[in-house]
């Protein structure tokens, strides 16, 4: 468990009870219960179309759902602050929004038609520093590469520091080295800010190294537990197929090279 960096205060958790989501008559999620402790990184895995993203969108309030979502909020606020890194973001190639504009906009600053003050700009450069992307400050977001864009989006999603951070397939645009760097970054953020982090991912190998808890979802909660418990379970084998299982079996613990 060396890679884990849980800082849970074991006192508060976000609890979801009997969550159901329907898309034009088809059930995406039916009656699932989940709970996420703060300071923990929870991974949500499962087959395509199994409703993983629907969980995040329900938490965001972007889609209608039935059931109950109770947030854990330490600071006594009414609504939790949610940071969100979307799965696909199709930025227009000719978009004139600069990285600096984007960061200002996403924290709700409405006056991008004014000259950006030096102080504000310095703050944004600092914010990009968290994801080692200071040099991107003046680039247009349409011109960024996939990895660059993902880092900028992550920088945006953690400012202001959220109570809950939702990451939907955050590493698809990264290579294997980039993936490790990315997750180490997430881990350090979690330590520093004590937030609840939810990651939806296909890359089971990478995520299982860093997650504290794992849910296998396919319309229902198939199984959950620590990554090693989930990956060695029969249910995992049935849902995700023989290939994943053999790999996870061969590598005993939770060092799985998934994402095939």
């Amino acid at each position: 468990m060396n890679n884990h960096c849980s800082t849970s205060c074991s006192g508060c958790s976000t609890v979801i009870r009997s969550l159901s989501v329907q898309f034009s008559g088809r059930k995406a999620l039916s009656d699932i219960d989940l709970s996420f402790s703060c300071g923990e990184l929870t991974a949500i895995i499962g087959p395509n179309g199994g409703g993983k993203t629907s969980i995040l969108k329900s938490i965001l309030g972007e889609i209608p759902y039935s059931g109950k979502i109770d947030f854990c909020i330490s600071s006594g606020k009414k609504k939790p602050r949610i940071g969100y890194l979307p799965q696909k973001i199709a930025v227009q190639k000719d978009s004139p929004v600069s990285v600096c504009d984007f960061l200002l906009l996403s924290e709700g600053y409405p006056f991008t038609w004014l000259r950006v003050s030096k102080k504000r700009r310095e703050m944004k450069i600092k914010q990009l520093g968290i994801v080692s992307a200071e040099n991107l400050i003046d680039r247009r977001i349409g011109e960024l590469s996939g990895g660059e864009l993902q880092r900028v989006l992550l920088a945006a999603s953690i400012n202001p520091v959220p109570d809950i951070l939702l990451l939907d397939e955050p590493v698809t645009a990264l290579d294997s080295k980039g993936i490790d760097i990315f997750y180490e970054l997430i881990c350090s953020l979690r330590k520093k800010f004590h937030m609840t982090i939810l990651v939806v991912s296909h890359d089971i190998g990478a995520i299982s190294k860093h997650a504290d808890k794992m849910y296998l979802i396919n319309e229902k909660v198939i199984t959950h537990g620590t990554p090693s418990e989930v990956l060695s379970s029969r249910d995992f084998r049935r849902e995700m197929g023989e290939v994943y299982f053999r790999l996870s079996g061969a590598k005993s613990d939770h060092h799985v090279y998934g994402g095939l």
Binding site: K57, L60, G61, E62, R81, I82, G83, Y84, P86, I89, A90, V91, Q92, S95, V97, D101, F102, L104, L105, S106, G108, Y109, P110, F111, T112, W113, I141, A156
Partner: peptide, 22 residues
């Protein structure tokens, strides 16, 4: 423009980024 151009610009990048905000 004074009050909403920023929101509209953000929507032009990715509408879902506005969910969870006000």
């Amino acid at each position: 423009w004074v009050f909403l151009s920023g929101r509209i610009s953000l929507i032009s990048v990715e509408p879902s980024l506005l969910y969870g905000k006000i």
